[in-house]
Amino acid sequence: MFLFYLESLIAVFPLFLKGLWVTVAISGLSLITATILGFLTGIGRSSEIKLLRYAIGFYVNLLRGTPFLVQIFVIFFILPEFGINLEPFPAAIIAMTFMGGAFICEIVAAGIEAVPKGQREAAIATGLSRYQQVRYVILPQAMRTILPPLVGQYVLLVKDSSIVSVIGVMDLTRVGWLTVQRIPEGMLVFGLVGIMYFAICYPLIQLAARLEKRMSVGESRL
């Protein structure tokens, strides 16, 4: 029986590849949008405007304090009540962007905070504009602190993309869930799903670890 299931699993393997592609597409797209949102809000957190800081803080805590599953339900089921009907795929991208953005915001804000105060004062004293300060003085130095956890966050984003399967996006997890209804060998089916996620995430985790090592070596020279 096991061999029979194995054979049928091989027969539906192209579906898994399609699911893998959807997972990569969703995480890749939302990785870009979340990074943009995260950097904008992260930089905004060190702004002088109090209201902006509070608004960003509220957004970050709201999204960090609730499970992603609940957020995706809110976007997918509640927005239609206000007349905004979204297909599963764009709904997934929006949910992932807001969630990822909140986490990246914290990472960016922490990175900016780690830049010595004197650097910014020097930038002001040299007469750089606010944009120039951030662009040429603060961010390049903050990137050292930001980069390793940012890559770590990308791993989380790929993994969290599995949750969008619940609103019907045909990603890797959804393909596995549908397959297991036909081929009741859960370990086989989700073992395969797991291996595919592993192939994406493991190299990213190694990259994050290597970046962290490199950055800390650079720091110890100071």
Binding site: S162, I163, G186, M187, L188, G191, I205
Partner: peptide, 20 residues
């Protein structure tokens, strides 16, 4: 293997896999 795969996949792995 735990850190490189989503929790949801692990959950389904046990939920559908253990009975089999």
């Amino acid at each position: 293997s735990m850190r490189s795969t989503p929790l949801l996949t692990q959950l389904y792995f046990f939920y559908f896999g253990l009975p089999s």
